[in-house]
Design a protein around this nucleic acid. Structure first.
Length: 649
RNA sequence: GGUUGUGUAGCUCAAUUGGAUAGAGCAUCUGACUACGAAUCAGAAGGUUUAAGGUUCGACUCCUUACACGACCA
């Protein structure tokens, strides 16, 4: 089995036919970028331009002036994009001059030379330039970088970055488990993504609500209930000594096992496979139980309550352990009736239609999709029925301008159907729906499958990574003076950091491979690498405080920076644009990469320059201040990923 | 059959959204702890970006076709 929120609608009419003709998908399908659509393209001015953005925009103005002065021409806005200069060349910003050759009637080098020369002479921030082919590299005076760092420090690392045309009131739905089994690896990617995306959007200044839609009803829930009824002997989590969700999951597996035996038996008796699957006694009983549940049968509902209660207890313990939370829970059992009302609404509006057996459908062929079942002939709901209700309920509760669904990419089609159906209903929030579609997690052995026992259990995995972190810390940690409780907290922080970083560093939309050995690794491109850098910085700050070094000393005597210092300032300064990019793309991976780059730049700096051996007071002070700021931004970046940082490790 | 996603070093992932000599980590090899923390740093080696065309000053990125793997539509 894959994710939760797995479609439970397996066979809807039993007869399958390929559509005869399918119109092409409408041209303006899904925009690649998440921002813009949420607010209809309306752009609000960001509350604050970060120092590099200011520097960049003044350089652009200067470039325009230069072009006027030298060529008497304007640089078209599209060609006036500065990009960071590649490491192997001198300079900080690069203008690509190839696009200007036609309009200016000169060669790319010639244009670069002329503009560079003019800037060097007239623009004090530009200390030098070089031209390589069609690339004009502008060197920025170190005094300017110091000024940038000073401005940066005036803002706390936690200050909101501005929504800049993005949504301002967002609901993020994530996790959304089934209540018939414990959470697994797939849920972890989902949970970490959902939590992190919410944090990233908050960092832009948006109001974000995290919600969890619990899939607590349906045939799969009845399966675990039936399994328990038959084979459970009134066992409880307490009597069995296992977590509630694992207990319930055990009976779900047991049901499947006996069910498959029944099917095999029937097939041996000569019954066709698909009929055997439908006619096996256990399946019939499960379906009967579902009907009893919908009819409100007291005994069934009581069992449902009890078992779901166990699962919630178990899931909540897992949520707590992995550090995710929710502002609101929705339950499918509480929204599917509302969904049926939406179906009725669509019938009244004439946008849905009946088939002979009384089932309700929507025709989405004009949207490039199929006809889609919304309600079965017997009036029971299908998976999408409750989604219609939940969307409405969420809108009533939050009045969002963007509603994000964190769901695996196997449900891309389903989400398109949902959005198209809501549009047919004329819902104002239909356009605000955004599916954050992420790839599934594969194992070295292939796809996770419940039936084949290849599922990686979330609780077990957390235990393993924490154990690995503990072993490493015992071996090489510097944890003198920490209490036992603090040590446990540290192991947990590091183990979970490794796991979260491992799952979040990959572009969400890509399918990823989970390698158990790499996931507990603490070296190289990992969470603990970054956490280690923070612990190092913490040690520097402790020592600086002991020595009474003033971080705010006068740096005006400093005229030049070391290469690694300049690199650090530049790295620090791009933070705001990194957060914006992560928000635009709904991609924690962007933050993860940044945090790694920053830590890497710091470690280089740390190895190359000495802080406390430095005799120049101003320089020593600057280095401590740089360290402190890096520490704060590492902390803040990792917070956006749901990770914490240690003071020592 | 259709729709859709993916394909980059031995492996796992990047590439500022069309820019320079495609970058990191792991694994392999070499060097750096009597210096502020070696969970670190410096270096070597590793590439026909699945293939073939096309678009242009320039293509991992866009277009066409093919191939491989996955997901979905019943």
């Amino acid at each position: 089995m894959g994710e939760s929120r797995q479609s439970t609608a397996i066979s809807q009419n039993g007869i399958f036919r390929w559509p005869r003709h399918r119109p092409p998908v409408a041209a303006e399908s899904v925009p690649a970028i998440f921002w813009r659509r949420a607010r209809g393209g309306e752009v609000t001015a960001p509350p604050y331009l970060c120092p590099v953005q200011q520097l960049e925009s003044s350089l652009k103005t200067a470039l325009q002036t230069a072009a006027q002065a030298v060529f008497g021409l304007e640089i078209p806005a599209a060609s006036l994009t500065l990009q960071p200069t590649r490491k192997e060349f001198a300079g900080s910003f690069t203008l690509v001059t190839f696009p200007l050759t036609k309009a200016f009637g000169k060669g790319p080098e010639q244009i670069g030379q002329a503009l560079g020369e003019w800037l060097k002479a007239h623009e004090p921030r530009v200390s030098g330039y070089n031209v390589v082919k069609g690339f004009l590299n502008l060197e920025i005076a170190d005094a300017e970088w110091l000024a940038v760092f000073n401005q940066l420090r005036a803002q706390p690392a936690t200050a909101p970055m501005g929504t800049d045309g993005g949504p301002q009131n967002v609901v993020v739905e994530y996790s959304s488990p089934n209540t018939n089994k414990p959470l697994h690896l797939g849920h972890l990617r989902n949970n970490f993504l959902g939590y992190s995306v919410a944090e990233i959007l908050k960092a832009t200044g948006a109001t974000v609500s995290k919600v969890n839609l619990v899939n607590d009803r349906g045939i799969h829930i009845c399966k675990s209930m039936l399994g328990y009824q038959r084979f459970g002997h009134n066992e409880t989590p307490a009597s069995a000594g296992i977590k509630g969700d694992h207990l319930v999951g055990k009976y779900y597996v047991l049901f499947e096992k006996h069910y498959r035996e029944e099917v095999k038996q029937l097939e041996a008796e000569g019954v066709a496979a698909d009929i055997a699957k439908r006619q096996a006694p256990l399946m019939l009983d499960a379906q009967q139980m579902l009907q009893q549940w919908e009819a409100g049968d007291e005994e069934v509902v009581a069992l449902w309550r009890q078992m779901n209660g166990w699962v919630y207890e178990g899931h909540n313990a897992t949520y707590k352990a992995i550090g995710v939370d929710f502002d609101k829970f929705y339950y499918e059992s509480g929204t599917y009736l509302l969904g049926k009302e939406r179906v009725e609404e669509g019938m009244n509006k004439g946008v849905f239609f009946n088939k002979e057996n009384g089932s309700v459908w929507v025709d989405l062929q004009a949207e490039g999709l199929d006809e889609k079942l919304l309600l079965r002939g017997d009036g029971t709901s299908v998976y999408i029925t409750q989604d219609l209700g939940t969307a409405e309920l969420k809108y009533q509760d939050f009045g969002y301008d963007s509603s994000i669904y964190v769901i695996a990419d196997e449900q891309n089609y389903h989400m398109q159907v949902l959005q198209a159906t809501l549009k047919k209903l004329g819902k104002p929030y239909a356009d605000a729906i955004h599916h954050l579609s992420y790839g599934m997690v594969d194992l070295p052995t292939g796809k996770m499958k419940t039936r084949e026992g290849t599922v990686v259990d979330a609780d077990e995995l957390v235990r393993d990574v924490v154990a690995a972190a503990k072993a490493a810390t015992l071996e090489k940690g510097k944890t003198e003076g920490l209490s036992d409780a603090e040590l446990e907290e540290l192991y947990h922080m590091l183990g979970l950091g490794a796991l979260k970083y491992y799952l979040l560093k990959v572009d969400p939309k890509k399918r990823m491979l989970f390698n158990p050995e790499e996931s507990v690794s603490l070296e190289g491109h990992t969470g603990p690498f970054i956490q280690y850098s923070h612990a190092r910085i913490a040690a520097i700050r402790r020592k600086a405080a002991e020595l009474g070094i003033d971080e705010t000393a006068d740096w005006s005597s400093i005229t030049s920076l070391e290469g690694t210092e300049r690199e650090l300032v530049q790295e620090l300064a791009r933070y705001a644009s990194v957060v914006a990019e992560a928000a635009r793309n709904l991609s924690p991976a962007v933050i993860a990469q940044y945090a790694y780059d920053l830590a890497k730049a710091y470690n280089r700096f740390y190895a190359e320059v000495s802080i406390f051996q430095e005799t120049d007071v101003a320089k020593r002070s600057l280095r401590v201040a740089l360290s402190a700021r890096v520490g704060e931004q590492i902390k803040q970046s990792l917070k956006l990923l749901g990770m914490q940082v240690p003071e020592r490790m």
